[in-house]
Amino acid sequence: MKLDLSFIGTALLQLIAAIPTTLSITAVSILCGLFIGTIVALIRLYKVPVLHYVAASYVTFVRGTPMLIHLLLIYFGLPILVDSLSAQFGWSFRSISIPMIAFAYISFSITAGAYLSEVVRSGLLAVNKGQIEAAYAIGMTTPQALSRIVFPQAFAIVLPNLSNSTISMLHGSTLVFTVSVVDINAKSQIIASSNWKFLESYIAAAIIYWSLTILIERLTTMVEKRLQLHKEGGVT
């Protein structure tokens, strides 16, 4: 068996078409997961009655089970729920109308939410409580104190972990081939099966994932430098 270097280039060109799908899954998962994670973190920090235990159970369950299981639970469970509700309330919508990529969006957002809740919670805990007390002293409400004082500082603190979570979700998105979504990984398998050049196809996929990972790291570094300049007063 001989490595066909020229086919790696051919595979790279064909894989470019699948990049938007992979990036959309990663972006939606992180953005929705960050929203979910922030809500869950606040519920746990402020120990909201009843919801505190629900949030803790959610985080424990998701962090204690694999991403693939989450995806399969949503893939097989959501249609049953949707069809049951549709039958009960007389809706015309059926689960067959749900696009396959939606299962990935929902599943990975739930997964990211649990992990990011811990990231957000650690960032919020790292902010000096004295600043919150000072905000209260000048008449700010809790939402104002959080949005103007706590969250900006917490974001700067958790940025490296947020970057790592984004990279993890990028790599985790390779699981979507199990629900027939054609991302970079699935596309590489299609290319390989049609030419029987599996090694070359997977090398091409690895190059793209590596490049995307480097891009995320570079963007994170740029944001960190920008935040540092603001902190030091270098930018008005």
Rank of each mutant, 00 (worst) to 15 (best):
S57F: 12
Y58F: 14
Y58P: 15
Y58C: 11
V59T: 15
V59P: 12
V59L: 12
T60D: 15
T60I: 15
F61I: 15
F61P: 06
V62F: 14
V62I: 15
R63A: 01
G64Q: 09
T65A: 05
T65M: 10
T65Q: 07
T65S: 11
P66Q: 03
M67I: 14
L68Y: 12
I69V: 15
I69F: 13
H70D: 04
H70E: 08
H70W: 06
L71N: 08
L73K: 09
L73A: 14
Y75T: 07
F76W: 12
F76L: 10
G77H: 03
L78G: 00
I80G: 05
I80W: 10
I80P: 03
L81P: 02
V82D: 01
V82G: 00
V82M: 00
D83E: 03
D83I: 01
D83A: 00
L85K: 03
L85F: 13
S86I: 07
A87K: 08
A87E: 07
A87V: 02
Q88A: 13
Q88N: 10
Q88V: 12
F89E: 02
F89Q: 02
F89A: 00
F89I: 03
F89N: 00
G90W: 01
W91H: 04
W91Y: 13
S92W: 05
R94W: 01
R94Y: 02
R94F: 01
S95F: 01
S97P: 04
S97D: 10
S97V: 04
S97R: 08
I98S: 11
I98L: 08
P99V: 08
P99A: 07
M100W: 06
M100E: 06
A102G: 03
A102D: 11
A102E: 06
A102L: 11
F103E: 00
F103D: 02
A104L: 04
A104I: 02
Y105T: 07
Y105R: 09
I106R: 10
I106M: 11
I106L: 15
I106G: 07
I106D: 10
